[in-house]
Design a protein around this nucleic acid. Sequence first.
DNA 1: GGTCAGGGTAGCC
DNA 2: GGCTACCCTGAC
Length: 299
Amino acid sequence: MFLEEHDEVIIDDENRSITIKGLKNFNPKHIFECGQCFRWDPEEDGSYTGIAFGKVLNVSKVDDLVVFKNTNFEDFKNIWVEYFDLNRRYSEIKEMLSKKDKYLNEAVKFGDGIRILKQDGWEMLISFIISANNRIPMIKRVIDTLSKKYGVFVQNYNGKDFYSFPSPIAFAETHMQEIRACSTGFRDKYIKKTSEAVILEDFEVNSLREVSGDECRKKLMSYSGVGAKVADCIALFGMQKYDSFPVDVWVKRVMQEFYNAQDMSLPKMRKFGVELFGKDAGFAQQYLFYYVRENQIGK
DNA sequence: GGTCAGGGTAGCC
DNA sequence: GGCTACCCTGAC
């Protein structure tokens, strides 16, 4: 069914759960806390619950069992295999990157269960506009509030209500002050203008998956509130442009601490990363980001 | 209650 | 391309 190494898949449609035994390169904590997504939160038992593509899912890992709860086999096959990119052989990527240098080798060992999610392009566009000059807990809170107010109710799971991510029209029809009331700060106008632009040109954001990485980033940067860093993130997390190397404060620290780039400008760091790691630059960035942020290196 | 920094961007040269 | 002004919020 999918290529990533595993022993067996246990389907329990009656209890709405899928269990995979011996699934390699999959750690919920690494996946959901490496900074690529904002709508997954840890439960008390260590599992994570989140929403994507209008479906609520709970993911846990106990010993060598990865368990997907609140789903049936149909959705697992059609949505989650793709979302978690289970057809990609991470062992090969990790092996390649580990050989690059000792820092990346260390970072890959540290975040060995990271996978880059294939998230919705539109959701990434707005989410990373919100991320500009913002903190991760705050970004999550803003997205949560916006979804509650302008999204569609999906399900109550474990005592919590889940709402879909708002559509372009929902933002375009909302007054800027109302958007701002969700603690977006100065990014309110970016959300509003970008939504209006997407509506006006009747643009299917996910169609950027079909164009080249450079063309994709260029188009993204034409939207208000999208600069180089944000475009790189959207391209990487929403459009599968793995040759993106987003440079934020943390990656900047990595480059300065590990790669002797003290006096390098941000555009040059980006170029440096892309040239160093090539088509897998995005994967390298995620391992490095998770490693330095979790260990607060360079602060 | 000031100061600081957070997954930066826009606008100007 | 590089530099600067600016942007809002929560934590200390």
